[in-house]
Design a protein around this nucleic acid. Structure first.
Length: 595
RNA sequence: GCUCCCGUAGUUCAACGGAUAGAAUGCAAGCUUGCGGAGUUUGUGAUUGAGGUUCGAUUCCUCACGGGAGCACCA
């Protein structure tokens, strides 16, 4: 049991003995870390919370609770607690012992790769769906955000004991495909000699992306093109045209291959790939089977009625929740919309893996419609209601005047990633690294810069990305964390070469370092990140930790035979490195060998 | 028009109803023969406005102002 839980239980016991349970039985005090170390390592507001209900002064109540806490233990006191004080308005502050901190360093060195794990999700299965790029379209910034967040959430639940299943959902049907195919088939080079491939998958994919944006423009502005694209759209569905089939099969294949290259750089490996084309019929069947108990057929609009058309299949979510609204699931022509595919997808996930929790990350625009879809599913399968979690990320807005990539193209997620890596490459150009090493380092550091700038903010908020400033390698950034960890690592390497091993030290200074006071908190941070599904808790913590280590580093000669505390410093360095390694892993950030 | 989210230093972000609102960046001034200066130390500077609840409000409630998203056959 963690010391935090222990303190919480002791306080609860003390309240019980004092017969001070609140009338509703709710215990809502917190045990937390004060901002300032001088206010202790843990602090509780219990006396402040209960004082009013009991019509007492907070300080008086704190005195009583304090007496009870001591009453509860033998004369040795509470293990791990050096001192308890009442301060401020009535806070009870706990100061932990030197031994506690020494033991926690020992614990970190011992647990190593497992340091920070918890068992909140022991035995559970969690499916996380994220990234969701569409074949035939560029990998844009939203996909990058979804990937960074989804990957980190996946790792956080994994560190909380769950078996994690990563899923990706991709739109391989729909008008965007027809637009891209139209663009391809009108491309002069294609018209001349019908070549498709442009070499590497990524090259081909970016050509398809350009074709898509041309096709999309024409669809909006040229009525003739719109007609042709609509025809192509039908042909993609019914597979009646040999040439279109060929372009479709090739385009789908190379864009997916190109995505795979990006996943490799980003550090994601999916267990499942779901496609809209497969989910549509499954969803349609479910929707039709639940008319009229869940879904209903709307009256056709006067226009539709003229042609003898029927109404659409809709779901009136506001009947069940006034905050929601009606949405169309099958068009009046019987075509399944995104909502229907989403039902097919959700049911497929539960059928295949039956996860205890199914997390989906999408952009914020999908927030309202997802609630409607989940309401419909909850009506059909009440047992799933609590298992479906939807998290939404905000928009990444680019600082004004910087709407194009370094190569002058429209900024996509991919261009941002490549630009970020290029910036690092320039920075390390004159280093004594081999070309291959430079490439590797620029990849790892470039990805880290981008991922960190996404993960440092809370998940829902928009991110403003300034091209010149935000791929920053100073201060609050991914590379800063990597740099700090690498410095620690190189000390460990040097120690090893001098036959010094980082192990729990025999002799430690009386004074407890700030670094120790932050290190032991890591598992709490991980647990909270899981509870909130917020990677930024980890990002913030690692920055604070790195900053603390860097101060320590600047003020202390770690390897020094003259200093009897040298082995203690080395153990701290190792504990720091382990924590950074595990924490960065949780953010989906790799550590380079050197940088 | 309706529903939801947001508004914190010049800028980009934190703060689970608590103590002196934390960082980073920017600007100003320092620090290295000691293991990586992508570092470190010090200074500077903020809760949109008006009410309310509370011992205590950036946090909860109401209104105003400002920004974003969604609201029937796109995804």
């Amino acid at each position: 049991m963690s010391i935090k839980n222990k303190l919480e239980n002791l306080i609860k016991d003390a309240l019980k003995k004092l017969e001070m349970n609140s009338p509703d039985g709710e215990v809502n005090f917190v045990v937390e870390h004060p901002e300032d170390f001088k206010n202790g390592d843990y602090s509780t507001n219990v006396a402040l919370v209960y004082a009013k209900k009991l019509k007492m002064k907070p300080v008086d109540l704190a005195e009583k609770i304090l007496a009870e806490l001591y009453e509860d233990t033998d004369e040795k006191g509470i293990k791990g607690v050096e001192n308890i004080e009442i301060a401020g308005a009535g806070f009870i502050n706990f100061y932990l012992t030197r031994e506690f901190f020494s033991d926690s360093i020992k614990d970190i060195l011992h647990k190593n790769e497992d340091w920070g794990r918890n068992n909140l999700l022991e035995g559970k299965k969690v499916m996380v769906e994220y990234t969701q790029p569409n074949p035939f379209k560029p990998f844009h910034i939203g996909h990058l955000m979804s990937n960074a967040i989804g990957e980190s959430v996946s790792r956080i639940v994994e560190f909380s004991g769950a078996k994690t299943i990563r899923a990706n959902y991709q739109g391989d049907v729909g008008p965007h495909i027809a637009k891209a195919i139209y663009g391809i088939m009108k491309d002069p080079e294609y018209l001349e000699a019908r070549p498709l491939s442009r070499g590497l998958a990524s090259k081909s994919a970016s050509w398809i992306g350009e074709c898509y944006s041309k096709g999309s423009d024409l669809y909006d502005n040229d009525p003739e093109a719109k007609k042709e694209i609509d025809v192509i759209n039908k042909k993609v569905y019914d597979k009646s045209d040999e040439e279109i089939n060929k372009v479709y099969d090739w385009g789908r294949k190379v864009t997916l291959e190109a995505f795979e290259e990006l996943y490799k750089i980003l550090g994601t490996k999916f267990d499942y790939y779901f496609f809209e084309s497969e989910m549509a019929p499954i969803g349609e069947k479910i929707v039709r089977a639940n008319v009229p108990n869940v879904f209903e057929e709307s009256d056709p609009t006067p226009e539709q009625a003229q042609y003898g058309a029927r109404g659409a299949i809709i779901f009136r979510a506001e009947k069940y929740n006034p905050k929601l609204h009606t949405r169309v699931f099958l068009t009046s022509q019987g075509i399944p919309l995104y909502e229907t595919k989403e039902i097919g997808l959700t049911m497929t996930k539960f059928e295949k893996e039956n996860p205890d929790i199914s997390i989906v990350d999408t952009a914020i625009e999908q927030g309202e419609y997802m609630k409607v879809v989940q309401q419909a599913i909850a009506l059909m399968h009440p047992e799933l209601e609590k298992k479906m979690l939807h998290i939404t990320h905000g928009m990444m807005r680019l600082a004004s005047g910087k709407m194009s990539s370094r190569k002058g193209n429209v900024v996509t997620g991919e261009s941002l990633l490549r630009d970020s890596m290029d910036v690092v490459l320039e920075k390390i150009q004159d280093r004594d690294f081999t070309e291959e090493e430079k490439k590797k380092v620029s990849e790892v550091v470039g990805v880290s810069a981008l991922k960190y700038s996404i993960l440092r903010s809370s998940v829902g908020s928009d991110i403003v990305y300034d091209f010149d400033k935000s791929i920053s390698f100073e201060g609050d950034s991914g590379p800063y964390l990597q740099y700090s960890a690498i410095r620690a690592k190189s000390i460990l390497a040097k120690a090893k070469s001098e036959n010094l091993e980082a192990k729990p030290p025999k002799e430690v200074p009386e004074q407890i370092s700030d670094l120790e006071k932050i290190l032991y908190r890591f598992p709490e941070v991980v647990a909270r990140s899981y509870e909130d599904l917020e990677p930024h808790n980890i990002a913030t913590y690692l920055t604070e930790l790195s900053s603390s280590f860097n101060s320590f580093y600047a003020n202390t000669q770690i390897l020094n035979n003259e200093d009897k505390f040298s082995s203690y410093y080395l153990a701290l360095t190792k504990a720091f490195f382990i924590t950074m390694q595990n924490g960065l892993w949780l953010l989906g950030i790799k550590l380079p060998e050197r940088m």
